[in-house]
């Protein structure tokens, strides 16, 4: 795993791997996969909480489990920056990874495609392809979103592109 920091690597190895290769158009097989997704997400969330590194909330936004919504946050200079998080499970999942969207940051950074989709590193897609179907939603959050927030949020804050919600409140009051 060239190109990943040791922390990401050790976290990744503790997320349960998935076994069922099925997507949202596969009926009962998708339900089986969905159960594995939940197990991996439960394990990952519990692990983050136990390490005092809780950083996202995610839930299925429809009964089929093909659309997901939640929040993610990042602490920079002791201030917490929180963003809406959403994504669709693509029809070709798990051959292709879901494209994570942070709609509030759309148009604010170059490291983003249209619609607020985050631009993943050159290391992500090869690793995902190599590990199909063992990686799931929990893995894309760990390998995709966590490093993206760590790299981009400090830049966006320091350049003044995004402001902490308390700052926004104070400046509008004054």
């Amino acid at each position: 795993m060239e190109g990943w920091d040791p922390n990401t690597k050790s976290t990744l190895t503790q997320i349960p791997l998935l076994t069922i290769k099925s997507g949202p158009r596969d009926g009962a097989l998708w339900t089986q996969r969905l159960k594995e997704e939940y197990k991996a997400l439960i394990a990952y969330t519990s692990m983050n909480k136990s390490k005092d590194n809780d950083w996202f909330r995610i839930s299925a936004a429809n009964p089929e489990g093909t659309r997901w919504k939640g929040k993610c946050w990042y602490v920079h200079n002791l201030l917490k920056y929180e963003f809406d998080l959403q994504f669709d499970i693509p029809v070709t999942y798990p051959a292709t990874a879901p494209e994570l969207e942070l709609p509030e940051l759309d148009g604010k950074t170059e490291k983003m495609y249209r619609g607020g989709k985050i631009c993943l590193t050159v290391h992500f897609k090869p690793l995902w392809a190599k590990n199909c179907p063992r990686f799931g939603i929990a893995h894309v959050l760990c390998l995709g979103l966590a490093p993206w927030l760590a790299a981009e949020i400090p830049v966006l804050v320091d350049s003044g592109t995004i402001k902490h919600k308390d700052d926004v409140a104070t400046s509008s009051e004054s």
Partner: peptide, 17 residues
């Protein structure tokens, strides 16, 4: 442990924390 609704409830419980 293998009921989808149960798993969904478990994740929501963690999320609510």
């Amino acid at each position: 442990a293998d009921d989808l609704e149960e798993l969904r409830r478990q994740l929501e419980a963690l999320n609510a924390d």
